[in-house]
Amino acid sequence: MSARDVVFPAERQALYERNRYSPAVRSNGFLFISGQVGSRPDGSPEPELEAQVRLAFDNLNAVLAAAGCTFSDVVDVTVFIVDPAQNFERIWKIFPDHWGEAPYPTLTGVGVTWLYGYQFEIKAIARLPESAAAVSGG
């Protein structure tokens, strides 16, 4: 098996190495992005929910940018929400600021009881631009 083609956003590699996972992997013309949370540069959670969601999108966008993508390249999204009955509407109103124009990516929402101190997590799959896919062998 060949080595994974890992993507690291600027200034976050130490955080991912400490937690032992890849932020994103390029494969066969796609970018598979690990769940992004509203973590500050030191890895601590942003305490306020709306700010945490905005920061999670900022962190997602940093991973996308490191691979030469934007949110418009995203084809599939999964969100994890602690206490969705209480938090869904507060979170959902933030999405249009980051979502872009229709047609939208597919979406799966999952209610969870625990996210390592966070209340929201977003993971995605993006289509790599032609130039990035060629570089990654996809």
Rank of each mutant, 00 (worst) to 15 (best):
residue 95 F to Y: 15
residue 6 V to W: 06
residue 4 R to E: 14
residue 37 V to S: 09
residue 84 P to K: 07
residue 13 Q to L: 03
residue 23 P to N: 04
residue 32 F to I: 13
residue 89 E to W: 06
residue 117 G to R: 09
residue 50 E to F: 01
residue 36 Q to C: 15
residue 26 R to P: 09
residue 80 F to A: 13
residue 129 P to K: 13
residue 46 E to H: 04
residue 64 L to Y: 10
residue 32 F to P: 00
residue 116 Y to N: 15
residue 49 L to T: 11
residue 63 V to G: 02
residue 57 F to I: 03
residue 138 G to P: 11
residue 54 R to Q: 13
residue 25 V to H: 06
residue 96 P to K: 09
residue 121 E to A: 15
residue 100 G to N: 04
residue 121 E to F: 01
residue 100 G to F: 08
residue 66 A to E: 07
residue 122 I to P: 10
residue 55 L to M: 13
residue 97 D to C: 00
residue 103 P to W: 02
residue 61 N to Q: 15
residue 81 I to K: 00
residue 46 E to F: 03
residue 102 A to N: 06
residue 89 E to M: 13
residue 45 P to K: 07
residue 49 L to D: 10
residue 30 F to A: 11
residue 68 G to P: 07
residue 34 S to W: 00
residue 126 A to P: 02
residue 111 G to L: 05
residue 79 V to A: 10
residue 95 F to A: 14
residue 100 G to E: 06
residue 130 E to A: 15
residue 114 W to A: 14
residue 4 R to Y: 11
residue 67 A to E: 04
residue 73 D to C: 04
residue 65 A to G: 07
residue 135 V to K: 13
residue 100 G to T: 04
residue 17 E to S: 03
residue 100 G to M: 01
residue 44 S to T: 15
residue 117 G to N: 03
residue 46 E to C: 11
residue 90 R to Q: 14
residue 113 T to W: 01
residue 130 E to C: 00
residue 21 Y to Q: 05
residue 137 G to E: 08
residue 86 Q to P: 00
residue 121 E to G: 08
residue 78 T to R: 15
residue 30 F to H: 09
residue 101 E to A: 14
residue 66 A to I: 02
residue 37 V to K: 05
residue 127 R to N: 05
residue 102 A to T: 12
residue 18 R to P: 00
residue 56 A to K: 03
residue 85 A to I: 09
residue 42 D to N: 14
residue 93 K to I: 13
residue 75 V to W: 05
residue 36 Q to M: 15
residue 77 V to A: 02
